[in-house]
Design a binder for these strands. Structure first.
Length: 862
RNA sequence: GCCGGGAUGGCGGAAUUGGUAGACGCAGCGGACUCAAAAUCCGCCGCUGGAAACAGUGUGGGGGUUCGACUCCCCCUCCCGGCACCA
């Protein structure tokens, strides 16, 4: 065996062997329990980053662990290949997005392979391939038939940088999720998927996902935003016509306190009233411009203007003035609200500002009501009772709402209603590099779906976008087609689908990726749902909500028979690194890569500063943050693998912190992981034939084989416990403990080292598969460690004759007592009381009570 | 403001769920090997006092329950993440 650990050689050899033997090809086998382990597929941006390495290592550790546990495991990989970075790259260097994308895929695939992931590459897919997106189009047409997809023109979020529409989910703090550009409002026609039809199920089913992190479920529930209330109308007359102003409220019990109404700037009543009222028209225009563009909408000053329109209170008939308010959102409820300034903080502020009346209708005895300032209790839902509300006086919230809803219903002016925050999913994008929407516009027949037998509508792959709109609009060969209905000349739709459509069902496609006649086939029944999904928390709403919706839509179309796509979800933490910078007296702040910085410590190991290696001059620390280009604190996985090998990279990733937590990068931590693998290697290199070993073992041993064996099995027991709860950092520690124990009981081959090393290699093989594969063969443990059974701790090894119990006096640790492992409580008590330590600390007092915890401790209370 | 998650040595993090706090590793200090350095190996390493034995103290702060609390309960401080004119 080679003296020195040379990761590059053994890793390539192992990877070649796995590839040649198709070791990770997954085949449906009803006799075995299946385990579908999926990591979120990457966008082919160019090269892997540390987040990818962490994500896929977690997935691979779980994959390999379950394989050895006897599961039939599927771990596929693919590419989320449509999207805007490809178009931006095309504009920058004139290469068609398709070519850029395929080149990136080729490079990143090579990188993934060099990390030794147990992936079934036979199922690889890329969403930009027609054989994949054909089924996007096919399913879109089925949704269209069912009314689940539809066209409408409405005010949408427009990203001025990416030149496209964004879904509500893609707008964060008023800015585009990708570009960070302030989103504008535009009225544009587009196609929508009726995700709101599934709002109730999407919300309710969250309770049936015990394997999902609580915070992801909370975020989804908040996003869906179910709210119970009353929808009712204020009747009014305008230009001689009888109209109704509909509003929604969760506080119908305060209806008698309404002193005005407010509508959104985009509300039809506002536009009607603005005719012949230039001041109002100007104000409406100001609201439309400003509102969504302001990132700090919440703190924005409340502004309004009266419309001059008066409506009637539905219960009292009182005249109520309607205002336009910049705080009313067109996208929620009816885009109009009843205003009860006495019991709603926003309405209160608005009424004070414009001198509108405030009428108290809720009271809590003992709490004084004053018009001077808003009090928290004014909006108290639990303790408030109706006052000044006629027949409703004395009622609490629930009873008042019931009574008022019934009265409104009797007048045919409304009733109870559930309102959702969730909006339908707008999927039209005015971009080139995406899946074409399979529709044809005919002057005679209108919009006509592309017939199934003409799918896919293929996207030309040779376009080079120039930044001036969608290049498809200039492609006559794409645009011109025959109307499927009348056969006349027609034009294709040039909008493409949101790329989140592509990723909403790829996990199902892996199960039947080679079937070009159906979207999914029977094999989906075997593999799906995904048993373990792993990815970043940033997809908590977008991708994970869309996928859940898509699954339910596919189910209702009879394509799959499961309700939820991902049984368990692991959201891995981000990879962080420290930032270092210098801020010159004049000029811009400059960031230095941590690799070029040397840390300074005092004699006690306390950090006292950092200097740039190049010039020895100090740099400032900007704290720990996500790896990013702008902060120059990224670490390239490629360099890491080339220097230390994939096993070291994988081990460090698992060891540095538990998978759900953030991981702080540390060069010396990587060094430590490498050191451990080198130690493992050199231990194995000395693992000679038994006769020689026996003697040398006795000589060098610092610990008895029996004690070492106990430690090894105890560490294994802990590791198995931690594997089951996905705490891989302590699994890695356990492996280190086992090697420490092996080294303590002497080198060479003997009964304990043979057993211990066989345990260690198997335990470690999901994390560092290459070195374990090599050593397993080299030392003659067997043919292929992939087929070795998972190690289990033996009771016999864990049995002890004598145990040491902690001895406490009055709860304070004072020493220890040794007793036989099977000693009765009585004997332990007697032994403890008789011990020197007990006599010393009891100071002659009598024991009041003795607590014995078997196997743990004795506490004497005096 | 609301919801969720946190706070443990110089650092990353353990503590099998109420039973020896600081496992494992990093950094640091001392030593061996070396002409020297790197690599490797051995030892020490929460804080305070002490030469040491040892004693005291210690899991963000304060109180409580318990023989015993990082862990459970109440109050407070700070940090991170999400949502937020949602009517």
């Amino acid at each position: 065996m080679q003296e020195k650990y040379a990761p590059a050689d053994i890793e390539q050899a192992a990877q070649r062997r796995w590839e040649d033997s198709a070791a990770f090809r997954a085949v449906e086998d009803p006799a075995k329990p299946k385990y579908y382990c999926l990591s979120m597929f990457p966008y082919p941006s160019g090269k892997l980053h540390m987040g990818h390495v962490r994500n896929y290592t977690i997935g691979d550790v779980l994959t390999r662990y379950h394989r050895m546990r006897g599961f039939n495991v599927l771990q596929p990989m693919g590419w989320d290949a449509f999207g805007l970075p490809a178009e931006n790259a095309a504009m920058a260097n004139g290469v068609p997005p398709a070519q850029w994308t395929y080149d990136n895929i080729a490079y990143m695939k090579k990188q993934l392979k060099s990390l030794g992931f147990a992936i079934d590459w036979g199922r690889e897919l890329a969403t930009c391939r027609p054989e994949y997106y054909k089924w996007n189009q096919w399913l879109f047409l089925r949704m269209l038939e069912k009314g689940l997809a539809y066209k409408k023109t409405q005010v949408v979020n427009w990203d001025p940088v990416d030149q496209t529409v964004l879904a509500n989910e893609q707008v964060i703090d008023g800015r585009g999720w990708r570009t960070g550009a302030a989103v504008e409002k535009r009225e544009i026609p587009g196609y929508y998927l009726a995700i709101t039809q599934y709002a109730d199920e999407l919300l309710g089913a969250l309770d049936r996902l015990p394997g999902w992190p609580e915070r992801v479920k909370t975020m989804q529930a908040n996003w869906i935003g179910k709210s119970h209330g009353v929808r009712f109308a204020f009747p009014y007359e305008l230009d001689g016509r009888r109209e109704k102003l509909w509003v929604f409220t969760t506080r119908a019990d305060t209806i008698m306190g309404v002193t005005f109404c407010a509508v959104a700037a985009e509300h039809p009543l506002a536009s009607t009233a603005a005719r012949g009222n230039p001041a109002l028209a100007a104000f409406i225009e100001e609201c439309k411009q400003g509102s969504v563009m302001e990132a700090d909408m919440a703190t924005m000053e409340k502004k309004g203007m009266p419309t001059g329109v008066f409506v009637s209170h539905p219960l009292t008939g009182e005249k109520i003035e309607v205002w336009v308010g910049n705080y009313v959102l067109m996208g929620y409820g009816e885009g109009a609200v009843m205003a009860v300034p006495a019991h709603d903080e926003r309405d209160f502020g608005f009424a004070k500002k414009y001198g509108l009346p405030i009428k108290q209708v809720i009271d809590i005895p003992g709490q004084p009501f004053s018009l001077d300032a808003w009090q928290e209790w004014y909006a108290d839902k639990e303790n408030g009772r109706c006052v000044h509300s006629g027949k409703y006086d004395g009622l609490g919230l629930a009873a008042a709402v019931d009574a008022i809803a019934a009265d409104l219903q009797a007048k045919d002016l409304g009733g109870k209603q559930v309102t959702w925050r969730l909006r339908d999913w707008g999927i039209s994008r005015q971009r080139y590099w995406g899946c074409p929407i399979p529709l044809i516009h005919c002057e005679r027949c209108g919009t006509v779906p592309v017939p199934d037998d003409q799918l896919p509508v293929a996207l030309p792959e040779d376009c080079v976008p120039d930044g001036a709109g969608n290049p498809l609009n200039k492609r006559e060969d794409f645009l011109n087609c025959a109307c499927p209905k009348c056969g006349g000349a027609a034009r294709r739709e040039t909008d493409t689908m949101d790329t989140f459509v592509d990723s909403s069902w790829y996990y199902s496609r892996y199960a039947s990726a080679d079937n070009h006649r159906a979207m999914v086939d029977a094999r989906v029944k075997y593999w799906l749902p995904v048993d373990q999904y792993i990815g970043g928390i940033e997809h908590a709403i977008l991708h994970l909500l869309y996928s859940r919706f898509w699954t339910k839509a596919m189910r209702d179309l009879g394509l799959v028979d499961f309700d939820e796509p991902f049984s368990r979800l692991l959201t891995q933490g981000m990879v962080l690194n420290e930032t270092f910078f210098r801020k010159p007296a004049a000029g811009r702040i400059r960031y230095y890569n941590p690799a070029d910085v040397e840390l300074k410590f005092d004699d006690k190991g306390n950090r006292i500063g950092a200097v740039l290696k190049e010039d020895g001059e100090p740099v400032e620390s900007g704290g720990i943050g996500t790896m990013s280009k702008s902060k120059n604190n990224g670490v390239d996985p490629q360099a890491l693998i080339e220097r230390y090998g994939a096993d070291t990279a994988r081990f460090f990733m698992m060891f540095a912190s538990p998978p759900e937590q953030t991981l702080e990068w540390s060069d010396s931590g990587v060094e430590g992981s490498y050191r451990f693998l080198k130690r493992l290697w050199s231990y194995c290199a000395r693992f000679g034939p038994s006769a020689v070993a026996e003697a040398s073992a006795k000589e060098s041993a610092k610990e008895s084989p029996k004690a070492a064996r106990f430690e090894i099995h105890a560490a294994l027991k802990q590791a198995n416990y931690d594997f089951a709860r996905f705490q891989f950092n302590t699994v890695a520690s356990a492996a280190m403990k086992i090697l420490n124990a092996l080294e303590r009981c002497g080198g060479g081959r003997h009964a304990v080292s043979e057993e211990g090393l066989s345990i260690l290699l198997r335990l470690l093989s999901p994390i560092t598969p290459h070195i374990c594969d090599h050593l397993w063969r080299e030392l003659g443990f067997g043919d292929d460690i992939l087929h070795a059974p998972w190690p289990e701790p033996l009771e016999a090894a864990l049995a002890q004759d004598e145990v040491e119990l902690v001895l406490q006096v009055n709860g304070k640790l004072r020493g220890a007592v040794k007793v036989p492992a099977d000693a009765a409580k009585k004997h332990i008590e007697a032994a403890a009381l008789a011990s020197e330590i007990a006599l010393k600390y009891m100071e002659g007092k009598a024991a009041k009570k003795v607590v014995v915890v078997p196997g743990r401790l004795v506490n004497i209370v005096v």
